[in-house]
């Protein structure tokens, strides 16, 4: 049983999409999603597909990785297509007919439209996490949530918690791996038997993981307090991420193009 050591989807290559500010990318993804749901013809889908394809090529993310997200929605895609295209014993003439089951031409066309929309949505939105490091993402998220601080929403604390979580994922994974190896050496099996037998094998791993978690939380809180951490008020950053004129230009231009595609096509 191996614990994956690398987490996250970030593909660290150098590209214009990678160097774009995280906040601009988030804005573009939101505009893209809205445009995708406004489009109501095949021509609009072709335009949206062209936008996604151009973004993938520009980002230098391998196609294999960019399309990986589709795997998770294959089932949904199949059900969507079947629900639209298949008719039970239709009165009208159908495209293909096997017994009482028939494939309806208009339904098939409609189903394909929805399938393409989901595929584009999945690939388009996953580009954000593929081209932005988790830390840059949480920084961007904090900046976007900052106006919410007026209604006492702890935006900076949320970003800090996510950053700590991201930092401790590899540490926790290593710890889990060490415990699993130690139990394997004592004869435990994690990959044999049914779900219940497997879950039971995890018990001697889970207890120390949780004990370590709560002890470490106490230590970490002491360490943060000793360094005068007192929440987000007045905290400054060593590397402040700023929207450069280029980021603004790409964001505004991209949103304009996507809005045009969404409204006209």
């Amino acid at each position: 049983m191996k614990v994956p050591v690398t987490f996250g989807q970030y593909v660290p290559v150098d590209s214009p999409v990678h160097s774009l500010d995280a906040k601009a990318k988030m804005g573009l993804v939101a505009a893209f999603t809205a445009a995708l749901f406004l489009v109501d013809g095949p021509l609009g889908m072709v335009a949206a597909a062209a936008v996604v394809a151009a973004a993938v090529v520009l980002s230098r993310v391998p196609w294999r990785i960019a399309l990986r997200g589709i795997r998770a929605v294959v089932m949904i895609l199949m059900i969507t297509l079947a629900a639209h295209a298949l008719r039970w014993n239709p009165a009208t003439v159908a495209l293909v007919r096997v017994g009482p089951l028939a494939v309806d031409a208009a339904g098939l066309k409609e189903g394909l439209f929805f399938v393409v929309r989901i595929v584009l949505l999945v690939v388009g939105t996953s580009l954000l996490t593929l081209t932005t490091s988790p830390v840059a993402l949480t920084d961007g998220l904090e900046r976007i949530m900052r106006p919410l601080a007026r209604v006492r929403f702890p935006a900076s604390e949320v970003a800090m918690m996510l950053t700590i979580a991201l930092r401790f994922i590899p540490t926790t994974a290593q710890e889990a791996e060490k415990l699993i190896v130690a139990q394997t050496a004592r004869g435990a099996r994690f990959d044999a038997g049914g779900p219940i037998a497997r879950a039971r094998a995890y018990a001697p791993v889970l207890v120390p993981l949780f004990v370590n978690l709560f002890r470490r939380a106490d230590d970490l809180a002491t360490a943060m307090e000793a360094r005068c951490y007192r929440g987000g008020v007045g905290r400054t950053r060593l590397h402040e991420s700023r929207m450069r004129p280029r980021d603004w230009a790409v964001l505004c231009l991209g949103t304009l193009v996507l809005a045009l595609v969404g409204i006209t096509l």
Partner: peptide, 22 residues
Amino acid sequence: LVVFVEIALTLALGVVLGSLKI
């Protein structure tokens, strides 16, 4: 602060346990 850090570490453990597909 302790609760705050506990939440953060809980999230990390959640990701790790979630990746161990039983």
